[in-house]
Design a protein around this nucleic acid. Structure first.
Length: 641
RNA sequence: GCUGGUGUAGCUCAAUAGGUAGAGCAGCUGACUUGUAAUCAGCAGGUUGGGGGUUCAAGUCCUCUCGCCAGCUCCA
């Protein structure tokens, strides 16, 4: 007899070779029915997820996982991807399957097929999947040798390549009905565990994520243990779409895009108000932190871009122009300009660190398929800075930047962002020693500041590694905003120096950094995070004055003038329309505050405030209202109080 | 750039099986003077993204092209 210790539910003695499911079933049928997976403890103390069909041959400690555990939903999605593959195989026997993992909120499977798959082909696949699910097939795991596996998958180049990549003599396969897949698992015990699923979209995806490889067909789907969860998920996605900055930007007249300039945003008056508020605050915080603002040209000679390395490593993304027969480029980055400013005079170690800030308008030729509202455009303003420093000043400088990022993000209401350390890319300048040093320095700074981070290998800039800060949009896609880049290479390329204490020339180190990232992307993500309901201090229109009829026009005009004089962004709706209509339109325009003026207000010399977020303040004095406004705006409050 | 989808008035959407474009909102005009999310009536608005083709006839079919959307690659 062997002993199975189940976390939180005691011990069971059992015969050797029984599956976890059988053992639990003997003890408690209900629990066995509900369980999805088991997390077993290996001899070395580490944990591993296994199927419920896992055979127990020894004493074992484990924990059962149920539908409410996150790992269970992952597994369900992964298993559903197998079910989808099985269905596709039924309809298109010639399909060759590549990989089919679970992802956040769903799963996909990539496969090669010499046919066009469009959304209308999804329905038949779903129908076939339903048949498989109701057939209640078991997921049967088998461990076989690589050679055996190669025989099974002899017609599938993708699986063969995967098998070759496995560092083990044995591989595992799973059988579901007559469908066999190479897979490490784990899986649900039977197809009937899939309570609800939906195929969502079809797209192309390169094999192994490499654009030089063949493009496969990818079908995305999502699965849940019950129908209610699927319904909630689909509703959540629909709701998130209402926060789309592309829609809100158009509705609120913030900016527009036109066929005449794809990827180049047009800023409208109300959008400019948001931009300028952000920039005003940005200037203030940079002055406080010892930055000096500069501005460098948009067009610079090709010669410069040869020197900087952009010609060799960034040309594909650049635009070029000819002036008087000479070749120039439109800047894709601000660094070379800042370096020319630095080089315009001699520098002493006593000046360091020198912090040049620049709101630099850059142009990049982004591939047409990647353009995405304000998140991905072809011209944008980086809130850039280039810091020239001594080696020993780097850690303090990086820490100071990290603090500025934290402060600005919290002021703008971003709490949920994550950090990545992007290391050396294949296409780069500078020696390996430089990269070792730079990467190490950044990692030290991250650790010193106790940031939680992950490594993003190969994603650094061509001149140096970087710490990236990512923020989520309404659909929880993440976008890189802030970045801190450490650069030993450019100072060398441009041969920049300073005079040291020893009266000798030395080479400074350079930090490139942005906080907002680009003003455009930042505004896009700001809008999505607030669903367009911007805090009072940022809202392009702060107050809408709504006279109930034109009998109160004069009094309303006085209130309007008063607020305007105080510097508030206020509009008055003088149309002869119902109050209901005026309120509705102010609501749709996402104006945070409405001032309602009728007979009562006029008589008592007061106003009534209707907050967009809900709730009224009845009959208050204008003076008092202004005090409240001032209080909210000066403190940059997220919600009006 | 690649894969798939899509493109009708400022916005949201109609238009049977190809028969030559229709509505609501917004706009303009007029009436209504209104107390917490759309008052009523009238008017005006489109060579159906653009080019080419098939056809007696194209918003509808074919083709090229551009934009947009989802995803892949790439990125602030």
């Amino acid at each position: 007899m062997k002993k199975l210790i189940i976390e939180n539910s005691g011990e069971v003695n059992h015969e050797e070779g029984l599956s976890i499911f059988d053992i639990i079933s003997d003890k408690d049928k209900q629990t066995a029915k509900k369980a999805i997976l088991a997390e077993i403890e290996l001899k070395d103390g580490s944990k591993k997820l296994v199927d419920l069909t896992f055979k127990v041959n020894d004493d074992l400690k484990m924990k059962l996982l149920f539908p409410e555990d996150a790992e269970s939903l992952d597994t369900l999605n992964h298993s559903t991807s197998h079910i989808m593959a099985a269905a596709i195989k039924k309809i298109y026997p010639e399909a060759k399957f590549a990989i089919g993992p679970s992802i956040k909120d769903g799963f996909y499977y990539d496969f090669e097929l010499d046919k066009v798959i469009s959304p209308e082909n999804l329905k038949p696949i779903e129908d076939e999947m339903k048949k498989i699910i109701s057939s209640n097939y078991s997921f049967i795991r088998k461990e076989i040798t690589k050679n055996e596996a190669k025989k099974i998958f002899k017609d599938n180049p993708y699986k063969l390549e995967l098998i070759d990549g496995i560092n083990d003599e044995y591989v595992s396969i799973y059988e579901t009905g007559d469908f066999i897949d190479l897979c490490s698992g784990p899986h649900i015990i039977s197809t009937s565990k899939v309570g609800a699923f939906k195929l969502l979209s079809v797209a192309g995806a390169y094999w192994r994520g490499n654009e030089n490889n063949k493009m496969l067909i990818r079908i995305y789907g999502t699965a849940f243990f019950n129908k209610e969860d699927l319904k909630n998920y689909l509703e959540r996605i629909e709701r998130a779409k209402l926060s789309d900055h592309r829609k809100i930007g158009k509705d609120l007249e913030l900016y527009s895009f036109h066929d005449e300039a794809p990827g180049f945003p047009f800023w409208h008056p109300k959008g400019m108000i948001i931009r300028n508020i952000i920039i005003d605050y940005w200037r203030k915080i940079h002055q406080e932190n010892g930055y000096q603002e500069i501005q460098t040209p948009v067009i610079l000679s090709n010669q410069l871009w040869h020197t900087s390395g952009h010609w060799d490593h960034y040309k594909e993304n650049m635009y070029f122009v000819k002036i008087d027969g000479n070749d120039y480029a439109i800047k894709p980055m601000n660094c070379p300009g800042a370096i020319l400013v630095y080089k315009s005079k001699q520098h002493s170690y006593r000046e360091f660190p020198i912090r040049y800030a620049e709101l630099g308008l850059v142009h990049r030729h982004e591939k047409s398929g990647v353009l995405h509202g304000l998140f991905r455009v072809r011209n944008f303003t980086q809130d850039d800075a280039h810091i020239f420093a001594l080696d020993e000043q780097l850690t303090a400088e990086i820490t100071s930047i990290i603090n500025m990022i934290g402060k600005m993000y919290s002021i703008f209401g971003f709490k949920d962002y994550h950090v990545e350390l992007s290391t050396r890319p294949a296409d780069r300048i500078g020696s390996d020693e430089m990269w070792d040093m730079a990467e190490q320095k950044l990692e030290e700074a991250i650790k010193e500041n106790n940031l939680v981070y992950k490594i993003n290998p190969g994603d650094g800039a061509f001149y140096g590694p970087k710490i990236d800060f990512h923020i989520k949009d309404s659909l929880e896609r993440t976008w890189q905003c802030a970045t801190i880049q450490l650069d030993f290479a450019m100072p060398e390329k441009f041969d920049i120096t300073y005079m040291g204490e020893d009266n000798l020339k030395h080479r400074p180190v350079m930090l490139h950094r942005v906080i907002l990232g680009s003003v455009e992307r930042f505004i896009g993500i700001l809008i999505e995070n607030y669903s367009g309901n911007l805090p009072l201090w940022i809202a392009p229109v702060q107050i809408a004055i709504l006279p109930i009829s034109d009998k109160y026009q004069q009094y309303s005009d006085n209130v309007f003038k008063k607020l305007k004089e105080e510097g508030y962004r206020v509009e008055i709706d003088n149309r002869v329309e119902s109050l209901n209509k005026k309120i509705r339109q102010a609501e749709l325009s996402k104006i945070p505050l409405m001032v309602i003026i009728g007979e009562k207000e006029q008589e008592s010399g007061t106003i009534t405030i209707r907050k967009k977020a809900g709730g009224d303040i009845k009959n208050i004095e204008i003076k008092e209202f202004i005090n409240i406004l001032r209080e909210n705006i000066e403190n940059k409050k997220t919600y009006f109080e």
